[in-house]
Design a protein around this nucleic acid. Structure first.
Lengths: 246, 246
DNA sequence: ATCCGAAATTCATATATAAGAGTTATAGGA
DNA sequence: TCCTATAACTCTTATATATGAATTTCGGAT
């Protein structure tokens, strides 16, 4: 099936592979190709865009580098998915004294409610002034002990019915992707030290005023829109936030 | 100049470009090509290894992705250097409320001494039990206010005469590279919340017991050996540690 | 001094071939 | 006839090379 995309690919501007990469990226962001889907083969795409296989391959190289697609020799190229493993290694940074990551155990759900967004929430999520949000509050445990208290704020528009859900699963991003078609792609975290207030100290089993690690996260979906604003308060007596600088 | 490297490149094993990448990496790590040096052209390397220019280019792609070399069309390929800008964006993560990085201002040097390494220092630097280290302690300021207190531990063997140096420059990694030929390539940081002891509170202008952000860093040189063990204590009242997850 | 072109570089694209994985066809025994 | 092992085929991604374009530098003619 040849859509004659050669017409779209302008000759004077960016190189072909960059233009093709943009087209492919758009199809993934629009959901035309969903996570887990098998992409057309490199030769098929080469036919469609009227270029060589190597050029399509170079376009795909960029998407692979951004963790948007995964290649398997002999089988094909697939849109990347949020497996629990990927979620753990990519988005979870708390490690124990041996520098190993441990999947957080069954979290205790404190609340999951729908309400109007507060000022700073709306600002961080780039929402209009009357938008509603779903707020999830929960405690996560490592090795049985409560370590993280989370407050997760998402736009209600993107997640209809989420507030009625009584048991939010542990792997949130996998759940978002599977149930709501929202893929979390990148995030920015800001980390600071603070001290535990009464509620925090209660949930995390600390003395009031004990130092805790605060992490705010703004996560973006594939199209670049912020879709999650998260505050995590962590007890770092037995764990640290590990960051690899390469 | 053709060394007949075709003989070294085994045919059955890894692909040619991967083998060549290994050879090039080794030359950089060994200091045969120093930071800032111009590499032989892609065609010259192709001649040397008896492969095509495209294969050498693919080998170089890997080094570019790892920030080891920099390419300039029409000019050539250069071994990457630690400019202050790169050091700031790559290794410095404290940002202000506008999420902008600010180069830390003239730091106050508390001490710079040579002594035997303590147990945990030697362990983190993978040194023998009698090895000596140089310990630098200093305070760094942002917008004029003291924000970071650092203790930097490096093996004395790699940095002869460092302890006699009375004014250690601000840009440490640039200095290490220029003066001692040690290039910091990657690092692992572990972050936690703690509270200021008397000394820390004094230097950072905080109340004793105030929450501060602790950051330990183990930095590696090009050959993978740990060359710096650093502890930073940060006042995060007006700054946060920003981490981009991509 | 200024312009122009040749030489050197990286960059872009195409082509050919190899290597991996799955499917189908086929031959040979029970 | 039925089952099984294997060979052959087809699809995929992966690797290697060839050719020309874009970009910078530099020297020589004007």
């Amino acid at each position: 099936m040849n859509f004659g995309f050669k017409a779209i690919l302008t000759t004077g501007q960016a190189p072909l592979y960059a233009q093709i990469r943009g087209h492919l990226l758009q199809r993934i962001a629009l959901g035309l190709w969903k996570p887990g889907d098998l992409l057309p083969s490199e030769t098929a795409l080469a036919d469609e865009f009227a270029v060589s296989q190597g050029t399509v391959r170079k376009a795909l190289d960029g998407l692979v580098a951004n963790n948007l697609v995964v290649r398997h020799q002999g089988k094909g190229t697939f849109v990347a998915t949020h497996t629990p493993q990927r979620e753990l290694f990519h988005f979870f940074h708390l490690v124990d004294q041996n520098f190993t990551r441990q999947m957080p155990e069954t979290s205790r759900l404190i609340s999951c409610q729908l309400r109007r967004g507060e000022r700073h929430e709306l600002h961080n999520l780039k929402l209009g002034s009357n938008a509603h949000v779903v707020v999830i509050r929960r405690v996560r445990r490592l090795y049985g002990k409560p370590v993280i208290m989370e407050r997760i704020v998402v736009p209600s528009k993107l997640f209809p019915g989420l507030s009625e859900n009584d048991n939010v699963p542990n792997e949130l991003y996998h759940f978002f992707e599977k149930t709501y078609g929202v893929t979390i792609h990148k995030a920015i975290e800001n980390i600071y030290a603070t001290s535990a207030n009464q509620e925090t100290s209660l949930y995390l089993g600390l003395k009031q005023g004990a130092p805790v690690l605060g992490i705010t996260r703004i996560a973006e979906s594939l199209d670049g829109a912020p879709v999650e604003y998260r505050l995590s308060l962590c007890n770092t007596c037995a764990h640290t936030y590990m960051n690899e600088i390469v």
